[in-house]
Simulated assay, not measured.
Amino acid sequence: MRLDNYISDLLYRYECVIIPEFGAFLTQRKGAQVHQTTNAFYPPSKVLSFNAQLSSNDGLLVKYIADVTGKEYENVLQKVQKEVASWKQDLDNTTIVSLENIGDLSINTEGNIQFEPSYHVNYLTSSFGLASFVSSEISRVTPTSEEIPELVAVEEETPVIPLVTTKEERSGFRFPWKYAAAAAIIFSASVFGFREYQSNQQVVEQSKAQESINEYIQQATFFGNNPVELPSITLQVAKEIKNYHVVAGAFRIEENAHTKVSQLKATGFDAALLGKNRYGLHQVSYASFATREEASEALIKIKQTEAPEAWLLVTE
């Protein structure tokens, strides 16, 4: 049985696919990138990695193969174990195990499994149809001082109209300067008086408004014998959503799942039953978190102190 096709299908939908008694393939979202040297543009993608410590069977892979092939769960589990045994034998013989569209597995000098991911498939569904491409570098030309045209200042000539008066005009027309001065004084006094009046009106209005406010405050503060019922205030507080769960296990029998929750709570964990997944297994979490950072820190601690087979589940 070739497992790489089934593993590849699950990597599109899950961040962790465990191969029982072997290890787990993990995915992590990676943003779009630009290569500074080759000017190549890469769309957002999922980066594959392998963790040999996550080898406990969570039922995801075996149940998926059973549903696709229509075979019994136990029968599929035996075939998976047989394929895993073949992989381990190849690795012991220093043979590279190549999984199509996933990557190559080999043994390093320290005797650990080394994984080299394949970059032929992008498992991020939101980037479907986006391919990498190379764009030529844009050359920017800065013009020299000789190419910049000189700015020529144009001074417009203002026409000068000569003032010519005759003796008759000087004697026949005299501008009434004294009347103009008197009119200016009267206009200035009117404007000043209007501004003073407007200012006094504003002071009066402000005083009336302040008195009304003080009277309202007194009525609201000192109820006396007839208390006034104030309107109630309803506050809407956003509930913190916790989509990151450190999974302790998945159980086919619900009673076993509840027993596991009680055991974890007795040891101090904020354990909870996450419900039944699409494969009919009841998942139990050590704790749930609102951010990936908090969940990752808790997962590392739990794997070191409690259960190496614990894994991270992300729900929408």
Results as ranks from 00 to 15, higher is better:
3 L>C: 08
9 D>G: 00
20 P>C: 06
21 E>G: 04
34 V>N: 12
36 Q>P: 09
37 T>L: 13
39 N>K: 10
40 A>H: 11
47 V>N: 13
48 L>R: 02
48 L>Y: 00
51 N>V: 02
55 S>P: 09
55 S>L: 09
57 N>K: 15
59 G>C: 01
59 G>Q: 01
59 G>K: 00
61 L>S: 04
67 D>K: 05
69 T>G: 12
73 Y>L: 12
77 L>E: 14
77 L>K: 14
79 K>G: 11
81 Q>Y: 14
81 Q>V: 12
84 V>F: 10
85 A>V: 08
87 W>Y: 14
90 D>W: 03
95 T>H: 11
108 N>L: 11
110 E>F: 03
110 E>Y: 10
113 I>F: 01
120 H>C: 07
121 V>G: 07
123 Y>A: 02
130 L>E: 14
131 A>I: 07
140 R>P: 04
141 V>Q: 02
147 E>V: 03
148 I>P: 09
160 V>K: 07
162 P>A: 12
170 R>V: 12
171 S>L: 11
173 F>K: 06
175 F>Q: 07
180 A>R: 04
181 A>K: 04
181 A>F: 05
184 A>V: 13
185 I>L: 07
191 V>R: 06
192 F>S: 14
195 R>W: 10
200 N>L: 08
201 Q>W: 01
203 V>Q: 10
209 A>S: 06
210 Q>T: 06
212 S>G: 06
213 I>N: 06
214 N>H: 01
215 E>R: 13
216 Y>R: 11
218 Q>W: 03
225 N>K: 10
227 P>E: 04
230 L>Y: 07
236 Q>C: 04
237 V>E: 15
240 E>L: 03
243 N>S: 15
244 Y>I: 13
245 H>E: 07
252 R>P: 15
262 S>I: 03
264 L>R: 05
279 Y>M: 08
285 S>Y: 04
286 Y>H: 05
288 S>T: 13
288 S>I: 15
290 A>C: 06
290 A>S: 14
292 R>S: 14
295 A>C: 13
297 E>W: 04
301 K>S: 03
304 Q>H: 12
307 A>Y: 06
308 P>E: 10
311 W>Y: 12
314 V>N: 12
316 E>D: 05
